[in-house]
Design a protein around this nucleic acid. Structure first.
Lengths: 333, 333
DNA sequence: ATGAAAGCGCTAACAT
DNA sequence: ATGTTAGCGCTTTCAT
């Protein structure tokens, strides 16, 4: 910047004013400075700008998600970006890959870079260590998974209610032997879904036909479902707690002697749409939008106590839960 | 930091040394300083750190993709993160949403924040304006789409060759009436695919049965394909140039009077796997890995002239291109 | 409408 | 093993 100032025969402060479109600059000086900026390839150093400037926000928010490759979260991020862009804020995204250690390291980096705010899908169980980060002035909103003893806003879907919605739907279709295929309930949302599943059955005076929580991926779900369908009596309906398992469960059902076993899944996906799988859907974009709005309300100076927003889920009947089967025929080997 | 120094009765430089794990510090001082850091909730200001430090890299790279919600790019990003994390670098991701203006704004921000390097999937046609950014010291590698007159490395897939691979496969199955369903060839990769398609047919002395470049999404692809299949003569095979169109094309074929029309698509997807759609696949993770390795080689001081790496594609026969049809039956309405 | 001086929070260089 | 001084690139404050 000093070089530009010298070359244009003005002070550094004047260059600074031109860079930031300060209105009261003579056209002559402005154009001279701009010419030198172009000629010398000057780019302001954001670190220096944000170091000196303390009143205004830096104009950037961070989003930390547990898994960026999951379409659910990339949809959420995209909605956040939309809100953020509308307010001329930059959105920077990072992914912890469900690793609490990486999450902590990334949050530290994002806070140290003094972003104005953070939206966090946490893979961690504890959040006490983030208190000092809040004190530094970085605002936070948790999304999809709640904070543990940290006074921040959060936006969650009604996971338990959603699972109950699925069970109630199957009960109305006459099913009484309903199985659960999901992954380990270490994650908060998975626990909520399993709990809603059990509660809804109990409310109807029923026990689960069976509960498998070892379906870590689609292949494991295929195996687990195939084993369930080989039992006597077999379940007449399966509820699966996340969209990554749908292809496995659907394939197991399609290849079994009872291809009309009902299936309802939690969360929507392209696959579920194409296969005609009935789902209980959250709206990831709405989740992101609401989280971003909460964050910006805080940046605008809202100091009320932390809020918790719960978003309802929607049942989308597509055939697999209504006696029409899944639109998948076994492939030749 | 001054507060911590005062509280621990040491100089600020000593605090700095403790923060950065400088080895020659007495245990007594170290623990006193650490205690005060915790008590006061001190967090170093990354802007100040990166402002003063000019020798070492800041430890962060940026990734700018055109569409984060596209599983192809999120896979690429995830591979980049893996390489980057192994080198203890932070990865920050931003999405331009295929908007050249947003791309320019985001690149400016990323360069101003003085990240060490950038991997860019560009939605822009021109890149001259990035020359000053290169001069500032931010290294860049382009991925998936080539730079236009900018001396930077890039990693691309063999789009034209891949499309030719698909056509050759269909020709070997005896098809002579092959149609193209894709989107507007404004994007470099789409142009390359269409060109490979035409070239491969021409090499066999054939004309395309027809070329539709108005399939902007799955619904448009459904309509376009349905119209093609109603022609007389109808194509016996369809090539579609991107995975977002597969569901539409497959549905049109399944619901047509000729459900055995062959289908080969460019790029793999969950959907293609489940439906048994034959595809020509790029490897998005490999694309990301190679781009990250090029970038880190530059950060390690490689000053050789810009390289261009072309990655081969792979044909994955799954039935839809080999006379077995698509595993999709029309859903009841 | 423009400039000079001070300082943001931190680290490099050079002490001791 | 620890402290002192200067200054990174910019903006603030106060001049003029």
């Amino acid at each position: 910047m000093r070089d530009v100032a010298t070359a244009a025969s003005v002070s550094v402060k004047t260059v600074s004013r031109v860079v930031h479109n300060y209105p009261f600059i003579s056209d002559d000086v402005r154009s001279r400075v701009q010419a030198e900026i172009r000629r010398l390839g000057f780019r302001p150093n954001g670190n220096a700008v944000n170091l000196r400037r303390t009143d205004r926000p830096a104009g950037g928010i961070g989003v930390l998600v547990a898994d960026l490759a999951d379409p659910f979260y990339s949809g959420m991020v995209s909605a956040i970006e939309q809100v953020s862009t509308a307010r001329s804020f930059t959105t920077l995204v990072a992914s912890s890959d469900e690793d609490p250690d990486r999450e902590r390291a990334l949050l530290t980096t994002l806070v140290e870079r003094r972003l104005d705010g953070l939206i966090v899908v946490s893979a961690d169980r504890r959040h006490d260590h983030l208190r000092p980060d809040l004190d530094v002035g970085t605002r936070m909103v948790f999304a999809d998974r709640p904070p543990n003893r940290l006074p921040v806003d959060c936006v969650l879907a009604a996971h338990a209610d959603g699972a109950a919605q699925a069970v109630d739907h199957l009960l109305r279709q006459g099913h009484r032997a309903i199985a659960y295929v999901g992954h380990s309930p270490a994650i908060h949302t998975a626990r909520q879904r399993l709990s809603g599943f059990r509660t809804a059955l109990a409310a109807a005076g029923l026990e689960p036909h069976s509960v498998r929580t070892d379906a870590t991926d689609a292949d494991a779900a295929l195996t687990a479902t195939a084993e369930l369908l080989a039992l006597n009596p077999a379940p007449t309906a399966v509820f699966t707690d996340n969209p990554r398992l749908v292809s496995g469960v659907a394939q197991a059902i399609a290849e079994s002697p009872t291809p009309n076993t009902a299936l309802v899944a939690f969360d929507d996906s392209d696959l579920a749409r194409v296969l005609g799988v009935t789902v209980v859907a959250q709206d990831p974009r709405e989740l992101g939008r609401r989280a971003a709005e909460l964050l910006f309300a805080r940046l605008d100076g809202d100091h009320s106590r932390p809020r918790r927003i719960i978003l309802p889920t929607t049942l989308l009947p597509r055939g697999s839960g209504e006696g029409l089967g899944v639109a998948l025929r076994p492939r030749p080997r």
